[in-house]
Every structure is written in structure tokens, then in C-alpha cells.
Design a binder for these strands. Structure first.
Lengths: 213, 213
DNA sequence: CGGATGGTTGAGGCCGCTCAATATGCGTGG
DNA sequence: CCACGCATATTGAGCGGCCTCAACCATCCG
């Protein structure tokens, strides 16, 4: 979800004794698990969160990565249908689910933010279904990098807080395919891979966009 | 989206000079196109609607099929990000987008219905991302048939209003793979395929559920 | 009956997966 | 500062599931 100016209102509110409370998570710590009762929903303050679903044999599909400003953890029912972990050390603001329920009826800003967040989550889900259903490995990785660079807004250098395994489980690939695709893009001069492997530098954004379809 | 008792309130309302107006579409007629201005959102009264996105080279990904009771066509922005066509002859109720905007602020039932519809759409999107990212062709077809039978609620015999091409573009497969998988399931005694090919009879629901992961 | 449309079946190829080995980065302790 | 160990990433070889391309079949209509 891009930090596109819709969320700061909420972020601001929570700095002034609003309804949200801060919580902190270490890397790989669980925020909530599939099956938990959904008491809160969250906004990322710093760090990154992954939400995912599992098949009984362990196959994992990461629905999305949530970066600062993003709202996650909204549920239709009482129970968590996804799990959520911190990717790196992460701070979030927790809102009570009942706040949402109470506020959808009033004219408050939070209600509008939440509705907007839902609609944007739906749009991202649609984009991701197109990616998973109809794009090649190279196109998937290119889309992923473009999306990250758009959301991070840090220009050429993109931080990759998540592991190759996380990326693979997001893009519907294996870690080997992710790795191979990245090195291929590097050989083609589209990106550069720093030694520490947890970042990507975009060298040819136009080429990436061309791959995105 | 299952017709799970949340929508009839809206459907009822529109029978009594509510905000909705009826519109009728022939099979394969366009309800709206990608890029259109999003003036309305819709609820299916009868028939079926597909919403989809296209890549520039023509590859299509169908986000979902919308059956009677389902709400579709909600957008975060001004523009349509998906196209929508009638699958068969279809009747819908159209609501003005401004109604939603006006109503999200009041305590009205429509606002709650719309929020509930968004959350359910999000859940279905999550299920579908898991399917597209991590399931085999056989698992995809099994999930699809189970989902349809659950939503149609007609027990053993499931109507398939959509073509093999539509199913393929929904499941991220080709028509050949869909066809082969259906015949394979038939050979295994899990389903039966009537001669007219636009329905499926479930013979072994447990086997289908086992395949669903 | 004949043509059109949609669905099924077959043969072969390719992309991404599996299994396995190697490399690299990083933290820890000598 | 280097040696070592561990976790993570990369690279390679071979395989297989789904795709591609093509022929065949069924159903529906005129």
C-alpha cells in the first residue's frame, strides 16, 4: 500500500493520545497467528510486517508486505484468516477492532481512512492476482522491485528487509528462481546487487517497467 | 462472495424505491471497461458477472465471478482498474458511487453492507492468491468447484455459466489444462460431466475437499 | 446437413521446480 | 585479526507439470 498521503492523518492522531497504542516486535516475532481472535488492527510505524496463509503441507503464500503507514489486520469475521510476523524489528500502532466497528458509523476521519485502506488493499490484491496468475518469473520479480521502489520512494537504492524465502513465498516462486532471476537482471544491467544482498539498486528503471507488462 | 445473509437487507431495500436502479445485460456484454470513470457500483440480481484485468499482450486474469447477491465494482479511485462483463444474461442493481461516499458517514445499513462486502472481497482475494501462488492445477480446479458449489448451494449439481476460457483465466491456467483436469477428476470418480458441459456433478465431495489442501 | 463455436485429446517443449553442491556474509571466540 | 560455524544466498544438473501447437470431437443452430 503506498504511503500516499491518506494515512498521515491517522498517524498524526495517534501521536496525541488517540485510540492507538504502540507495540514493538523483534525480527520474525509473531504479531498474530492464523486462528487467533481478531481483537486489533494495526498500522506500521517502522519496520515491516508480512501477512501470509499456509497450506496444511507447509506451502506458504505471503499476501503482502506492510511498510510504514500501511494498515493491516482487518478481518471480516472474528478469527484471523492470515498470520502476521515482523520481518525486521518493527513498531506498530494497535487499534481495537471495536473502534473500527464503532467508527464506521460516524463521520470520523479514522472510518474514512480504514475504508480507503480496504479499497487500496483490494486494488493491491487485484494487481497481485494478475501477477500470480499470468506473469513469468522475470515479470514477477520486476513488478515486485518496482512496487517496492515506488513505496519506499528512496529512488535508485531499494532496501530489501525480507529474505529470499519471503520474496519467493510472495511471488509464488522458489528461492532459487528468485535468486536466478535477480542475477539475470544484474547480468542484463537492469539492477545492481550490493554485496550484503539485502538491497537492490535500480540501474534501468525503464527496462523494469517494460518487464512489468 | 457467498450469499451469506448480509446482502438481502440491501436487496430488499432496492425493491422499495431505494437508491438502486436495475440494469440488464446480455451474455458477454460489457458492464464497464478498464479506464472508465467509476460512477456506479453494483449488486448482481440474477446471472453472473466476471471482473478481470488485462496485460498489454492480452493475457487476462479474472479476479472473480460475481453471483446473485454479490457486490462488485467498488473502486478506491475515480477510474476503473478492472473490466466487468456479463457472463450470461444478467440483471444488476446499480448504486451511485456518491451514495457509498455519502453513506459511509452515516449509520445506514448500506454502509455496513458495503464495508462487509469489501472485507469479504478481501478474504476471497487472499484465498485466491494462495490458490494462484501455491496450488497445483488439480488443486485449483478442486478449489474452484468447491467454492462454486458452496456459493450456489444447489448440492451435487453445479451450474458452470462461464466458459473454459473464463475458468482458465480465473485459475491462472490454460483451457487445455482445465479440460484435462476435469476429465482426470471424472476418470477418478470425483465428479461427473454431463454431456452439455456447462455443469458438474460432485460425486465425491470429500475427495474434492482433500485436494483443496 | 453443414458450418461455427466451444471443448477435448495428443505430442512435444520449456519454464520453473527439485535436489544437491558451493559460496558468501556475519557473528563468535580464540 | 583470523578461524570457525551457521544461516542465507547462489549456482548447477536434471526433471516434470503445465503450456504450446495441432488435430479431433460434440453440440448447437441455421
Amino acid at each position: 500500500m503506498p504511503n500516499d498521503g491518506l494515512v498521515p492523518a491517522v498517524r498524526h492522531r495517534q501521536g496525541e493520545a488517540g485510540p492507538g497504542s504502540r507495540r514493538r516486535f523483534a525480527a520474525d516475532e509473531e504479531v498474530y497467528a492464523e486462528g487467533d481472535r481478531a481483537v486489533h488492527f494495526y498500522m506500521v510505524v517502522s519496520g515491516a510486517v508480512r501477512t501470509y496463509r499456509l497450506l496444511s503441507d507447509g506451502r506458504r503464500q505471503i499476501d503482502g508486505f506492510h511498510l510504514p503507514g500501511d494498515i493491516f489486520g482487518l478481518e471480516a469475521g472474528e478469527e484471523r484468516r492470515t498470520g502476521a510476523d515482523a520481518v525486521t524489528d518493527t513498531t506498530v500502532t494497535a487499534f481495537r477492532r471495536s473502534d473500527r466497528d464503532a467508527l464506521t458509523g460516524d463521520a470520523g476521519a479514522l472510518a474514512r481512512e480504514v475504508v480507503a485502506a480496504m479499497l487500496r488493499a483490494l486494488e493491491r490484491a487485484q494487481d497481485h492476482m494478475l501477477l500470480l496468475g499470468r506473469k513469468s518469473a522475470k515479470e514477477r520479480v520486476a513488478s515486485f522491485l518496482l512496487g517496492l521502489s515506488r513505496r519506499a520512494g528512496t529512488g535508485g537504492a531499494i532496501a530489501l528487509p525480507m529474505s529470499r524465502t519471503d520474496i519467493a513465498d510472495h511471488l509464488g516462486l522458489t528461492i532459487e528462481s528468485v535468486s536466478r532471476t535477480l542475477t539475470q537482471l544484474e547480468r542484463e544491467g537492469v539492477i545492481a546487487l550490493p554485496a550484503h544482498r539485502r538491497a537492490v539498486e535500480v540501474r534501468d528503471g525503464a527496462a523494469l517497467r517494460r518487464l512489468d507488462g
